[in-house]
């Protein structure tokens, strides 16, 4: 079947099998490998993307269901070569180690800050509880998101 969706502001039309998962569509068909595949059961959150501004685990939604919607992936988080404050926060506060869960948790964090620009640490912890990280023990992820909240308009590193 044919699906059309907007991904990071660009419209794509592709032939896909009806059963194809969005995560595989993004990775294998569009080559957007920043979204990862981790568990198939919606538990780990490494596949988190935004659909119409909402964080969604792309391993449990079909590409066909995303047709007609606006998808935002990690590749669309930076703007004009400038890292999003969330990305900068993760760098400043060492919010990542292996980097595998990082795109997913940052997409969740961006959604949180869009909704609540100044969340306290308890709110942050609850918000990212659907994103599992095995490296950081979450402490620096929480700090990274707080950093982003405190630096909303920081000029980005374009490194």
């Amino acid at each position: 079947m044919q699906v059309t969706m907007t991904v990071n502001g660009e419209e794509f039309t592709r032939e896909v099998e009806p059963r194809m998962l969005l995560v595989h569509f993004l990775r294998d068909d569009l080559g957007l490998t920043g979204t990862h595949w981790g568990c198939d059961t919606s538990n780990c959150g490494v596949c988190t993307v935004q659909i119409d501004g909402q964080p969604v685990k792309s391993c449990t939604i079909l590409a066909a269901m995303a047709a007609g919607h606006e998808i935002r992936t990690i590749e669309g988080l930076e703007q004009n070569g400038t890292l999003d404050p969330v990305q900068q926060g993760f760098m400043q506060e060492h919010g990542l180690q292996c980097g595998f869960c990082t795109p997913g948790v940052m997409m969740t964090a961006r959604w949180l800050l869009d909704k609540n620009p100044d969340p306290d640490t308890e709110t942050i912890r609850e918000c990212i509880s659907g994103n599992i990280c095995r490296c950081t023990g979450y402490e620096n992820i929480v700090r990274a998101i707080r950093w982003a909240a405190e630096h909303p308009a920081t000029e980005g590193a374009s490194a």
């Binding site: 957007l32 920043g34 930076e78 993760f90 760098m91 990542l96 990082t102 795109p103 940052m106």
Partner: peptide, 8 residues
Amino acid sequence: EDVRFLRG
């Protein structure tokens, strides 16, 4: 190494 991971 952070920059490449942060950008996907």
